Simulated assay, not measured.
Amino acid sequence: MTDNSTRLDHVVLWVRDPAASTAFYQDVLGLEPVRLTEHKNGEAPFPSVRVSDETIIDLMPVARAPRLTMVPGADGSTGHPVNHICLSVTETAFDALLERLRERAVPMSGVSHNSFGARGRAARNVYFRDPDGNVMEVRHYD
């Protein structure tokens, strides 16, 4: 794997209820909330969840869409489709995730094998949706 200085910093997802989405990502994926208290107190426009030391997912309230005018032509882009986000975890974490998805009756795809990704072929991967319909893929490599 190449060690280059470019890294994924964050992904922004449109969500209806940031607190509920944060709970989903915390409870199902085990991701740590960031700025949730500040968001609830009106001190931050949205919460995030931490994927790694260097990467977060921002959970942007869809109600803020009319205010996001910094990119010309971006008005009306709320809910613009993103195909999916993929997270890579350990084999143990993958097994635990499958169990949590089943316990919470979260609809999911079948488990696939040998799907290509950033680190080559993954041993297993699974797809499911968050409460706002964003498609998540989680995989583990050998």
Rank of each mutant, 00 (worst) to 15 (best):
residue 51 V to I: 06
residue 46 F to K: 09
residue 34 V to M: 08
residue 22 T to Q: 04
residue 33 P to W: 02
residue 36 L to C: 01
residue 23 A to D: 10
residue 30 G to T: 02
residue 41 N to V: 07
residue 54 E to A: 12
residue 42 G to Y: 03
residue 18 P to R: 00
residue 20 A to Q: 08
residue 39 H to T: 11
residue 9 D to H: 14
residue 45 P to G: 12
residue 64 R to Q: 14
residue 65 A to M: 11
residue 64 R to P: 10
residue 38 E to R: 07
residue 12 V to H: 09
residue 29 L to P: 02
residue 51 V to T: 00
residue 64 R to E: 10
residue 59 L to S: 04
residue 37 T to V: 15
residue 60 M to S: 14
residue 32 E to P: 07
residue 30 G to Q: 01
residue 59 L to E: 05
residue 41 N to Q: 13
residue 31 L to Q: 04
residue 10 H to S: 02
residue 24 F to M: 03
residue 32 E to M: 12
residue 42 G to C: 05
residue 40 K to F: 09
residue 36 L to R: 00
residue 13 L to P: 02
residue 26 Q to S: 12
residue 47 P to C: 02
residue 27 D to L: 07
residue 62 V to T: 15
residue 39 H to Q: 10
residue 18 P to W: 00
residue 63 A to P: 13
residue 39 H to M: 07
residue 19 A to S: 09
residue 7 R to I: 13
residue 21 S to P: 00
residue 8 L to P: 12
residue 57 I to T: 04
residue 44 A to Q: 12
residue 25 Y to F: 05
residue 47 P to D: 01
residue 16 R to W: 09
residue 63 A to K: 13
residue 55 T to I: 06
residue 36 L to Q: 00
residue 42 G to H: 02
residue 51 V to S: 03
residue 6 T to D: 14
residue 70 M to D: 14
residue 60 M to R: 14
residue 33 P to G: 00
residue 46 F to R: 10
residue 34 V to G: 08
residue 27 D to P: 07
residue 60 M to E: 11
residue 53 D to A: 14
residue 22 T to E: 01
residue 7 R to H: 12
residue 56 I to M: 11
residue 9 D to T: 11
residue 48 S to C: 12
residue 54 E to F: 15
residue 45 P to A: 14
residue 69 T to L: 10
residue 27 D to N: 14
residue 61 P to I: 04
residue 32 E to N: 07
residue 13 L to G: 03
residue 29 L to I: 02
residue 23 A to L: 08
residue 7 R to Y: 12
residue 53 D to S: 11
residue 66 P to L: 08
residue 53 D to P: 10
residue 55 T to Y: 06
residue 38 E to G: 06
residue 62 V to Q: 08
residue 6 T to I: 13
residue 64 R to L: 15
residue 61 P to E: 03
residue 50 R to S: 03
residue 56 I to R: 13
residue 27 D to A: 11
residue 6 T to E: 11
residue 27 D to F: 08
residue 8 L to T: 05
residue 59 L to M: 03
residue 51 V to K: 01
residue 18 P to N: 00
residue 54 E to K: 11
residue 37 T to Q: 13
residue 28 V to G: 05
residue 19 A to I: 09
residue 66 P to E: 08
residue 58 D to N: 13
residue 16 R to L: 10
residue 21 S to V: 02
residue 68 L to S: 09
residue 65 A to I: 10
residue 53 D to W: 09
residue 17 D to N: 10
residue 42 G to F: 03
residue 41 N to G: 09
residue 10 H to I: 02
residue 23 A to Y: 06
residue 61 P to M: 03
residue 8 L to Q: 06
residue 47 P to M: 00
residue 12 V to G: 13
residue 34 V to F: 09
residue 26 Q to M: 08
residue 21 S to A: 08
residue 33 P to Y: 01
residue 13 L to N: 03
residue 19 A to K: 07
residue 57 I to L: 05
residue 67 R to H: 10
residue 30 G to Y: 03
residue 50 R to N: 03
residue 12 V to R: 11
residue 35 R to M: 13
residue 30 G to N: 01
residue 47 P to Q: 01
residue 14 W to F: 10
residue 51 V to Q: 01
residue 68 L to F: 12
residue 49 V to W: 04
residue 25 Y to H: 04
residue 46 F to P: 07
residue 36 L to K: 00
residue 44 A to H: 13
residue 35 R to N: 12
residue 32 E to K: 15
residue 45 P to C: 09
residue 47 P to T: 01
residue 63 A to Q: 12
residue 32 E to I: 08
residue 44 A to S: 15
residue 24 F to C: 01
residue 17 D to Q: 06
residue 54 E to C: 07
residue 6 T to V: 10
residue 25 Y to N: 01
residue 59 L to D: 05
residue 6 T to K: 12
residue 10 H to W: 08
